[in-house]
Design a protein around this nucleic acid. Structure first.
Lengths: 113, 113
DNA sequence: CGCGCTGTATTATGGCACTGAAGCACTATT
DNA sequence: AATAGTGCTTCAGTGCCATAATACAGCGCG
């Protein structure tokens, strides 16, 4: 659903955010360079820069021009809380409404880990 | 999430599907005309037609040119089963993964009715 | 200094999806 | 026949996305 026809820069943004939350991009560590990530993902450097842009504006990554971009302290916590609130207030109600309409019992969703 | 920056014709499509599943557009009954629904929703008739298009291709609505479009027999059941399967196989795994990442326990969200 | 690595800005271009306006084709009713 | 209601086709416009080529600016190191 989230990985299909969505703009590339948004997919990259989500992917980076997940990596920060999971600690795969640890706080204080340097993020992959624009060109490096672009090459790795087969995307354009400009597109990667656009994905990084949003994190800069929010102060979640610190830019050292000529050096690289670093994950700010507390970025993982802020990011997780923000996405958590957004999920609960916006996405979950609609998901729940859909489950009710489709007749999906909550129990059957919890069987697997 | 589903009601923000999503194309109008897709929002209309979901809305119509929900109405069919819920029986607000009963089987055998005539659907609102393209122009009528467009006026009601403040959209362009063509956009509404595009939303209806997908149901025609799947045989869920029957078109009588010059007359109108009617909900096919069994449309509600087919539609509900299809969306149900799609939800379980495609959407839910991603939702589950996100909830795990954000530290949300599924059980506490499913307890209330 | 010179080289190589960072991010950034500019401009241009192609593609694609969405939306819209006008008109055509068909049917039922009068 | 005339009218008014249907869906449908065609043409055109708009905006976003992605890419490309190029150049600029800051930093570290030999």
């Amino acid at each position: 659903m989230s990985n299909q026809s969505k703009p590339v820069y948004l997919k990259l943004r989500d992917q980076i955010a997940a990596a920060i939350i999971d600690g795969r991009y640890p706080e204080g560590e340097m993020l992959p360079s624009v060109r490096a990530l672009a090459a790795e993902q087969g995307a354009n450097p400009l597109t990667v820069a656009k994905a990084y842009q949003q994190f800069q504006n929010d102060g979640l990554v610190e830019v050292q021009r000529g050096v690289g971009m670093y994950v700010a302290d507390g970025a993982a916590r802020v990011l997780r809380n923000r996405e958590r609130d957004a999920f609960l207030s916006e996405e979950w109600p609609e998901i729940r409404e859909r489950m009710d309409r489709l007749g999906i019992a909550p129990a059957e969703l919890l069987t697997d880990a």
